[in-house]
Design a protein around this nucleic acid. Sequence first.
DNA 1: GAGTGGTCTAGACCACGTG
DNA 2: ACGTGGTCTAGACCACTCC
Lengths: 244, 244
Amino acid sequence: MVTAKARTNEPRYAQVAADLRAAIAAGDFGEGAQLPTESTLCDRYGVSRFTVREALRRLQSEGLIRRRRGSGTVVDTIGQVLRQPLSDVAELLQYAAGSVFNFDVLGPMVMGEAQAALLGAAPGSRWAHLSGIRTLSPGGPPVAVTDVYINADLAGHIPALQPGSQTLFEQLSASAGFQIGRIDQDIRAIAAGSREAAALAISRRAPVLQIVRVYRDASGRIVEISVSAHAGDRFAYSMHIDHG
Amino acid sequence: MVTAKARTNEPRYAQVAADLRAAIAAGDFGEGAQLPTESTLCDRYGVSRFTVREALRRLQSEGLIRRRRGSGTVVDTIGQVLRQPLSDVAELLQYAAGSVFNFDVLGPMVMGEAQAALLGAAPGSRWAHLSGIRTLSPGGPPVAVTDVYINADLAGHIPALQPGSQTLFEQLSASAGFQIGRIDQDIRAIAAGSREAAALAISRRAPVLQIVRVYRDASGRIVEISVSAHAGDRFAYSMHIDHG
DNA sequence: GAGTGGTCTAGACCACGTG
DNA sequence: ACGTGGTCTAGACCACTCC
């Protein structure tokens, strides 16, 4: 039986997508061409085809399903876990949810020329500097060491930030009341410096994956910049691309 | 004036998207809230709102525009070039279009246990092994060194492969007549081995960005696997995520 | 030929940002 | 108050896959 959970203020396609996601996670569909047809889902949820297709579009962009004209929709379960897929904001937050981030507030700083070029911010702009370590579980081995720069306009919200499994960006969004806009991300391979080596328990000059993220609110203002270093032999960044 | 280029067999939203892309590239719109409204574009191109929205959705996923309810659609020109954005197959092919790939056919091989685990293929499966160098221009400095494994079922199409700016996957798709399905990609930081060091003119153990791509056709069969090594100080992998 | 997902129309109402 | 993009309906035709 299909539970028609009527959440408030949430689009119907999101409810349909959540329901299908849960069903897939519960193993209600096996390998092969298992998912019901669009028209079947329309009847089942009592929505139009537009709504069903929007829900399926989300699942496809998450890599959960694969669709083919003439063949149908199949569950795509290659390499289940152990990866860090990332194709929309929800998946980014999911990554954060599986790990723990602890940080210290280092104080205010002004963006220098070289740093500004690397990070994509304006030289001379003012930020609050934080530094932290991400682990897979509390007290566990370090996964990444991170520098975080938060827009000085939001400095008042920094004392309220909590370590844990929710991203700083999420917390800032809720606390300061802005909408999530867009995240830009650069990935490089660099050699570990003394700081990364010590924090990640690797040797100096060992390869590390550096991920620079620039978070913007809906109006395009840069809210936060983070620079993470991941040990090369412990972390792979995984993503997928669908044709369409 | 709006040229209503009536291409054959191409969806209307793709034509609208191509026209807007060209207009943006030509600088017809500046900074700020420049792009015409959805209803304006409907009138201009003589299509429904569905078609216009699908076109704008593509441009948004490419990072060209940013949309906001109440505000409108603006051109997003942060960090114009110099990056390698990658959010769908078209952008992947665009990356290839800006560079040149030369390769040698090394012959048939069987996937070993360790390699199979790294690459996500079945141990004991049979492949054709190719090796190549990617440069930004013919005769230019190397950007990446790549190992390519092509499904043995497609061995007959390998002699027809041409070096140049079209990806091997594209050529195989056209030659063997299959549809592009899905591409999975893992990104790691590793230390350069002797082969990467020699090919990229860097020192041994220097950090390199390793990108493993698994290409599948529409039916899910693995068609090609590629393993690329990029010099860490010359290459950044850039992507963006839109909220929605 | 039957059924699938892909494209497309012509409407509608709503949440949101800006005057 | 108004216009924007976001959601949604009820239809339609088509390209493609499979039997």
